[in-house]
């Protein structure tokens, strides 16, 4: 028996995660599948924390376990819950299983070539990554290396990822949005039969969320602003801000939130976030530097050259936060209201 390079808890969680994933797929009720999938995401989060990836675990807790579960539930709310197949399709399932196992075997055949788990000298750990670790303080005065790499060293990457979130939001709008005034198709109303028990009636839930939401939002702003020193940043803070508004949508009513955050505002603010990010890059060019090279902003920002990058990172994180927050709210609203922006979950 070789010495275990990993702790037993990790092994336990890894086995549990496989079981949870299979359970989520085996459920006959889609609502249960969504909840088990949320639990699966939380377990993943624990595993990643154990591996030292706190920022990723934070994002997964907010996004994977929180928002994606809510998206699935919102979709199911407008459609059906049952996942009972009409035909069992046993033969086809076996055939698909053979393909999946063959793919897995092909991947596993490469197993001896991989470095051992936790090897600090493996190619991925020993080539480019040490540069980031050694230079983050010197270059940007940001102790959280993930934030520096995210917004500075690989700023282009993050700009385009933010744009992808924005584009996905537009895609969902163009797929589902229905102008109910112009709708000529005899589509059924949003919900064929309203649920017997209306959860929005619960006084306890409404009061509890009324108290929770301001604290969630302050915490989210803290996560964005303190991302330089601790796990967090624009993505996580933006998702939490979005989740706080989604909580209001669920506990009160979609109409209640739409009074403040109209569809137009949400769409404009989603675009504004990407624009802030891109504008910081353009500002760098106007100041005589390269695109997204924050050193060029030194004359207008306080502190020395490294602090120009420090504040540049903060500016683009705010842009990321705005886009992510409003795209999450927009996607939720359009899924929950079946594209009509009138009423919903």
């Amino acid at each position: 028996m070789p010495e275990l390079p990993i702790w037993q808890f990790d092994t336990l969680f890894l086995i549990a995660v496989v079981l949870f994933g299979i359970t989520a797929l085996a459920m006959q009720n889609l609502m249960s599948a969504a909840i088990v999938f949320g639990a699966y995401s939380f377990l993943m989060c624990l595993i990643w924390t154990g591996m030292g990836a706190v920022d990723v675990a934070f994002t997964e807790a907010a996004v994977g376990a929180g928002v994606s579960t809510v998206f699935i539930v919102a979709t199911i709310y407008n459609t059906g819950v049952s996942a009972k197949p009409k035909h069992p399709r046993v033969g086809f399932k076996l055939f698909a299983g053979v393909i999946a196992v063959a793919t897995g075997a092909l991947l596993l055949s490469a197993l001896p070539d991989f470095p051992a788990w936790g090897d600090p000298q493996s190619p991925v750990n020993a080539t480019v990554a040490p540069y980031y670790i050694e230079n983050t303080i010197e270059d940007a005065r940001v102790p959280n290396i993930v934030t520096t790499v995210l917004a500075d060293y690989r700023g282009f990457d993050t700009l385009l990822e933010t744009a992808v979130v924005f584009i996905a939001c537009i895609a969902i709008y163009s797929i589902l949005r229905v102008d109910s005034a112009k709708a000529t198709v005899d589509e059924p109303d949003i919900i064929a039969s309203p649920p017997a028990y209306d959860p929005t009636d619960s006084l306890i839930i409404r009061q509890a969320s009324r108290i929770m939401v301001p604290f969630m939002q302050i915490f989210a702003l803290y996560v964005i602003a303190h991302g330089h020193y601790s796990p967090g940043g624009g993505f996580q803070g933006g998702v939490i801000l979005g989740a706080s508004v989604i909580l209001l949508c669920i506990s009160f009513d979609l109409k209640f939130v739409l009074r403040q955050w109209t569809e137009k505002k949400i769409m404009l603010l989603t675009a504004l976030g990407v624009l802030i990010y891109a504008a910081v890059g353009v500002a760098c060019m106007f100041m005589g530097g390269d695109y997204l090279n924050y050193n060029a902003l030194d004359p207008v920002l306080p502190g020395d050259m490294a602090y120009a990058r420090y504040y540049g990172i903060l500016l683009v994180e705010i842009g990321v936060g705005v886009t992510v927050m409003f795209s999450m709210i927009g996607i939720y609203m359009i899924l929950a209201s079946n594209g009509r922006f009138k009423r919903g979950l």
Partner: peptide, 11 residues
């Protein structure tokens, strides 16, 4: 790389 992948994944 994975942090941004998660957010793009949910989109």
């Amino acid at each position: 790389l994975m942090l941004t992948a998660i957010v793009v994944g949910v989109a």
